[in-house]
Nucleic acid binder design. Structure first.
Lengths: 193, 193
DNA sequence: ATGTTTTTAGAACGATCGTTCGATTGATTC
DNA sequence: GAATCAATCGAACGATCGTTCTAAAAACAT
């Protein structure tokens, strides 16, 4: 890895820290440069502008989330197993890219037209994946509610909220937490078998 | 209602619209004044500064949320009925003060020390209410999970996410939606009786 | 070693930010 | 109707914003 790549990666990491904590408009380019200990101009040289830096962070991590979920879905055959696999994958990505997903979630909607569009599209994509699985579950009669859409929202609420409260230095180990969250979701969504 | 009160209320309403959409740092005092069609100075005359305006909006609505939930809790005797009542009350407040709660949730943590403290405290308060109920449920053996804290987070995830997806002009009526959300929560949290 | 290109730093620009101030208007009181 | 007070306005201040520009430094090629 060359020196220039180090600068890029380092800036992305620093920017991610500040963006995910203070939001897009709450973060200034000068903050990022100062914290990272480099000049303002570097950011513009490497990323063009503030929006470019924001997009690059999302591109690196969040944009592949739908594909990860689809891959998890494809690894199982029954809707129930698919739902379980997708939620598990979603939770796993959530801890690998916690700050990036927080960027996506917290700022969704409150960004200007151009930047926000990407994030909204990704969320819509994820929504579609869950909707498909739950629809098939519903056709099997295995869904507790007849309102697929509401159930999807409820599941996304649990998973997305997990991003907000999970702390890597917490007392419980990750596997336990994920199992608990998954169980809650499955009990909430699925009829007893 | 006097003319001055109209100015205050009007400004609060306009500010709420913009704050809840663009966030604290994404909103400028000039935006609010321009949209409302008054001078900048009015805001400072009535609310002191930007932070004062933000706090006043929260004071009007969100700060009483814990009391509303406690009142709902006190209206029932069994933990299970209490949980149901509190969630119902929570959902009801969510549609009455949707934008205000979004302000509280979206911006929590990404505000400067002073302003953010209030919001964090309110959320901690709400967390405590749910924790108490679920702990009693757990002692009855009626809780599915042995991890009360995780269950509380899961419930809050569902309820808070409801704020994000609910649209007053949607196809389903409010009662149906609330019943669905409540059922999901109860199935997820409670053991079969 | 020299010339060329890539990368960094620092100063500067115009715009906008939150905030303050003095003057002006409107309402109220004597 | 004059005096007093509350409410509003417009202009201005300093600070900070995103961004650009120019020059120096570093890395690279020959």
């Amino acid at each position: 890895m060359t020196i220039q790549a180090d600068m890029r990666e380092g800036l992305l990491s620093t920017a991610l820290d500040i963006f995910s904590e203070k939001g897009f408009s709450g973060t200034s380019i000068r903050d990022i440069a100062k914290v990272h200990g480099v000049s303002l101009s570097n950011i513009y040289y490497h990323f063009g502008n503030k929006e470019g830096l924001w997009r690059e962070i999302l591109k690196r991590s969040v944009q592949e989330l739908p594909n990860i979920l689809r891959q998890a879905e494809a690894s199982e055959t029954t809707p129930r197993a698919q739902l379980e696999a997708v939620v598990r994958a979603h939770l796993r990505v959530a801890i690998d890219h916690q700050r990036e997903l927080l960027m996506l979630l917290v700022q969704a909607g409150q960004l200007e037209e151009g930047i926000g569009h990407d994030t909204v599209e990704i969320q819509r994509d994820i929504l579609g994946i869950y909707s498909g699985i739950l629809k098939r579950l519903s056709e099997e009669g295995a869904l507790s509610s007849e309102h697929v859409k509401i159930t999807v929202f409820n599941i996304l609420g649990v998973v997305n909220w997990y991003l907000r409260w999970y702390r890597p230095d917490g007392p419980l180990d990750v596997e336990t937490i994920h199992q608990e969250v998954l169980d809650f979701v499955l009990r909430g969504a699925c009829r007893d078998t």
